[in-house]
Design a protein around this nucleic acid. Structure first.
Length: 447
RNA sequence: UCCCCGGUAGCUCAGCAGGUAGAGCGGGUGGCUGUUAACCACUUGGUCGGCGGUUCGAGUCCGUCCCGGGGAGCCA
């Protein structure tokens, strides 16, 4: 847990040993320390008692031996239950029998609060039950590990873009209209000005920012009111989106490949312990180094039809098709140049074949499906106006977007990366709902 | 919105051909000086999702509604 290295210390209590993070107990062998946290596990064997304590940095087993701490404190042990909050003082010992390698001989035990009937037991639970108790489920080692991987993904994304000269530009969450028009939006009242909608993408605003700063990205929540009920869907999810002036489709594919491979390598380098807790086979992650294979929609379609999965030209791929395509490769695959008819209005047509869009989807291996969608954007005002008409989108709310084509329009491209899908793949999760602290699903708004 | 599966103790589940409610875990009590989801003994624990129907009798069969899970479409 490298992040513990720089954790600021809180004030020690007079008369008590210094407070130590469990992750740093190695630095305190032979010393008296104070540990503050929650009871993770309890065992009693007559005159010797064990409790495993969690403090957010790790787990440590405390040993209570009668005579080595006040009798009153020893008896307090019997009142403890799972998730009791407490303060322990003790002597740090190297102990080969202990999972972390260190143990605490407890010299003082002070319960802070003792729960009755903590709902989550150290046994198997159903998904529905755990989701109802998500606020408590987060305390489990597995969920902690996922959240730490997620944190690493966020950090790595920001590092990558910063290193590539991209500027973080925050796009609005409350928007006057749809970005793409096709998907359903969450609607809300906006004071006295009618309806507002929760953003389903920062892309259009990011295009404006790219015309100011060249290379930009945004990182925020995204909302889709679709009645999707699959392992790959949330109604509220996080997306990192990039947009760069003068980038072609080829440029943006290189950027997407660079981002994903960098994030994977950072997670492998810094979150190996968490991946181990998750029992993740890391060989598919280790393989995710450039170059990622690139195939066209036409090639992908041909592969599917040869494999017996009959599909007509012009249709978008579903989850099953994505899985079949990705199974042919050992790393993420980029499928480019889909038929324009199944893609969004803002995508530039391929000059070599105007029926195709200059777009790309990156499919994660192991059936995790699309993690990135990107494209080169329409740069010409007249073309864009035609597209809006074709898609029957209202022009007035997008006049500002059209301005970008009136005032110094340039070729530009961008993509969006779904964070939860990436985290789910990295962690080997069965469902994206575990990749976000408090998932919002079709039929779930609690807790 | 559509298709499939499910709802029995706090949790995970079993319940035979329709005959009147079970286990493990958890909780409680006691025992044990090195336990690793400790172990042993005893004990606590139920509106069988709701409503209606068939039947002498329904957890079990039928209808319907509610809730949960999985999948499709759409998307990241």
């Amino acid at each position: 847990m490298t992040s513990a290295d720089q954790r600021p210390q809180t004030e020690d209590q007079p008369g008590s040993p210094p407070v130590a993070d469990i992750a740093r107990l190695a630095d305190h062998v032979g010393q008296a320390v104070t540990v503050r946290g929650w009871v993770h596990h309890l065992r009693s064997s007559g005159k010797i008692r064990f409790l495993v304590v969690r403090d957010g940095t790790g787990l440590v087993q405390g040993v209570l031996v009668k005579g080595q701490l006040p009798d009153g404190d020893f008896q307090e042990f019997d009142r403890l239950t799972l998730e009791s909050s407490l303060i322990l003082e003790g002597l740090v010992r190297a102990e080969p029998r202990a999972p972390g390698g260190f143990e605490l001989t407890v010299t003082r035990l002070e319960p802070l609060q003792i729960p009755q009937d903590y709902p989550i037991a150290p046994k198997e639970h159903g998904v529905g039950f755990l989701m109802d108790h998500r606020h408590l489920w987060l305390r489990s080692p597995r969920q902690q590990a996922i959240l730490r991987v997620r944190d690493e993904v966020f950090r790595a994304c920001r590092d990558f873009f910063h290193g590539q000269g991209f500027v973080l530009v925050d796009t609005p969450i409350l928007t006057p209209t749809a970005c793409e028009g096709t998907t359903s939006l969450f609607e809300t009242d906006y004071l006295d000005r009618g309806k507002a909608y929760l953003s389903q993408s920062g892309q259009l605003y990011l295009e404006a920012a790219a015309m100011a700063l060249g290379r930009v990205y945004c990182f925020g929540p995204t909302f889709r009111a679709e009645k999707s009920k699959t392992r790959r869907h949330l109604t509220e999810f996080w997306m990192v989106e990039a947009e760069a002036a003068f980038f072609t489709l080829e440029d943006i594919m290189g950027l997407a490949e660079g981002l994903v491979s960098y994030v994977v390598q950072e997670v492998l380098a810094h979150r190996g312990q968490e991946l181990k807790i998750l029992e993740r086979d890391i060989s598919p992650l280790e393989a995710a180094v450039p170059p990622f294979p690139r195939i066209s929609y036409g090639e992908a379609l041909a592969r599917l039809n040869e494999g017996g999965q009959e599909m007509a030209w012009g249709e978008d791929f579903g989850g099953d098709e994505e899985t079949l395509i990705s199974q042919a490769f050992d790393r993420p695959v980029m499928v480019h140049r889909y038929p324009r008819q199944c893609k969004a209005f803002y995508m530039e047509a391929d000059a070599a074949n105007p029926e195709l869009a200059l777009c790309v989807d990156m499919l994660a291996p192991e059936g995790y499906g699309e993690i990135i969608g990107g494209s080169q954007r329409v740069a010409d005002l007249e073309v864009l106006l035609t597209r809006l008409a074709e898609h029957r989108l209202p022009r007035e709310p997008l006049e500002w977007y059209l301005d970008l084509r009136r005032y110094g329009s340039v070729p530009h491209s961008g993509f969006g990366l779904g964070i939860e899908r990436l985290v789910a793949w990295l962690c080997g999760l069965k469902h994206v709902r575990e990749a976000i602290p408090f998932p919002r699903l079709l039929d779930r708004l609690y807790p």
